[in-house]
Simulated assay, not measured.
Amino acid sequence: MNNEKNIWQIIWEYDPNGLIVVDTQMNITLVNPAFCKMFNVNQDETIGKPASTILEDLKDFQKVWEKDEVIRGREKRYHLEHHKNSETDILYVKEVIFPIRDQNLIACIMVDITHEWQRKQEMIKLRNETVSKVNEVVDHQMKVVQEIAGLLGETTAETKVSLLKIIKMVNQETV
Rank of each mutant, 00 (worst) to 15 (best):
L30Y: 14
K59W: 08
E45H: 14
V31Q: 04
V145L: 13
C108G: 09
V70I: 15
N171I: 02
I90P: 01
L126K: 03
Q25I: 03
V137T: 08
F35L: 08
D102F: 07
V111H: 12
P16W: 04
E147I: 05
D15L: 14
E154C: 00
E4Y: 13
F61P: 06
W117G: 00
K120I: 04
T46R: 01
K133T: 08
H83S: 15
E87D: 09
K143S: 14
A51S: 13
M26N: 10
Y14P: 00
M38S: 01
T130L: 13
Q121Y: 01
A149D: 13
V21A: 07
I100D: 06
Q25H: 04
E56W: 08
N42M: 05
N27Y: 09
M38I: 04
F35P: 02
F39D: 02
Q146D: 12
V134I: 15
V144S: 11
D60W: 05
T156V: 06
H79Q: 10
G48E: 09
D102S: 07
K125T: 13
S52Y: 03
T29D: 05
T114E: 01
L55M: 02
T53A: 02
E154K: 11
Y92V: 07
W8V: 12
I11V: 15
V131F: 09
E116M: 10
M1P: 11
E56Y: 06
H115R: 12
M123H: 06
P50L: 09
V96E: 10
D44C: 03
Q172F: 06
I109M: 12
W12C: 04
C36S: 11
P16T: 09
L30C: 11
D23E: 01
I7M: 07
Y92T: 03
K120W: 08
I148P: 03
E136S: 12
L91R: 03
G73V: 02
W8N: 02
I97D: 06
L30M: 14
R127N: 10
V93G: 01
M169R: 13
I148K: 15
S162I: 00
Q9H: 06
E116W: 09
I167F: 00
